[in-house]
């Protein structure tokens, strides 16, 4: 937050996968953004809500989830600085899932009114956000493949490589290490395995010298072998604006 503005966080993130011209940048910088700091594991918007604003992740991590049956929860996506996890609420007015913080977060709320005006006055920004929404859908397709077809070890490996690749794109990794406040319970909810199974797979991946998770820091020990285990192809992340 100190030197970079919330708009910088958003611009940096959007520029990874789309071209943004100077007029677009000026328009984005004029957006009113209401900053809030919230604690870990707190709801941001919930199923059934009619949020008046979209939320930009400025610092920290956010997850989207849906409660299934009695007390089971499926994590649908993890979001990092620069993401707008509930962008859909601009056009789908009632939330069909939950958005909550992982660790402590700084969020920027952008009211729907100014955001809608921006999209109408700057067609290029509308296209950029549309492209972003399509990439979001590409991630969901990959997650379906992950929980539906991969083995337990491959699922976790894939999730870790995906998070690493997305964080690296915005410069939030330190070599092969990155901070990500995840627990074995959350990992299980994201890849459809019991916490016990996750615990075993993590022991296995550590034993094979592939990755290590220690109190909110994930370290990839062997990138090539982990990517092989993960069956990872980064195409679906569409990180190159010209492709």
């Amino acid at each position: 937050m100190d030197r970079t503005s919330p708009a910088d966080t958003l611009l940096k993130r959007l520029r990874i996968s789309a071209d943004i011209n100077e007029a677009d940048e000026r328009a984005i910088r004029r957006l009113p953004i209401n900053i809030k700091r919230i604690g870990g594991n707190e709801p941001i918007v919930s199923f059934g809500d009619r949020p008046p604003a979209c939320c930009l992740v400025i610092e920290g991590f956010v997850l989207r989830s849906k409660n299934v049956g009695e007390g089971e929860r499926q994590i649908l996506a993890f979001h990092q600085p620069g993401d707008i996890p509930d962008l859909q609420s601009l056009y789908l007015h009632i939330m069909d899932h939950d958005v909550s913080s992982m660790g402590e977060c700084v969020l920027g709320f952008i009211a729907h009114g100014p955001l809608r005006s921006l999209v109408r006055s700057q067609p290029n920004i509308a296209e950029v956000l549309w492209r972003d929404t399509l990439i979001d859908a590409a991630l969901f397709r990959e997650w379906i493949c992950n929980v539906g077809q991969r083995s337990g070890a491959s699922r976790l490996a894939h999730l870790v490589v995906e998070i690493y690749t997305r964080l690296k794109a915005v410069g939030l990794v330190n070599g092969l290490s990155f901070d990500f406040p995840v627990t074995q319970v959350l990992l299980g909810e994201a890849v459809g395995l019991s916490t016990v199974h996750v615990n075993r797979v993590l022991q296995q991946l550590r034993g094979e010298g592939l990755l290590e998770i220690d109190r909110g820091t994930i370290t990839i020990l062997d990138e090539t072998r982990l990517k092989n285990k993960a069956d990872f192809d980064p195409l679906y992340l569409h990180l190159n604006p010209s492709l």
Binding site: T195, N199, R200
Partner: peptide
């Protein structure tokens, strides 16, 4: 694997369910 961390559950029934789900998914 030998579990050194352990996992918290509200009671024996929940632990049994976790054991069954884990055994079948492995």
């Amino acid at each position: 694997t030998e579990d050194r961390d352990g996992v918290d559950y509200p009671g024996l029934d929940a632990a049994k369910l976790a054991a069954i789900r884990t055994a079948t998914s492995i």
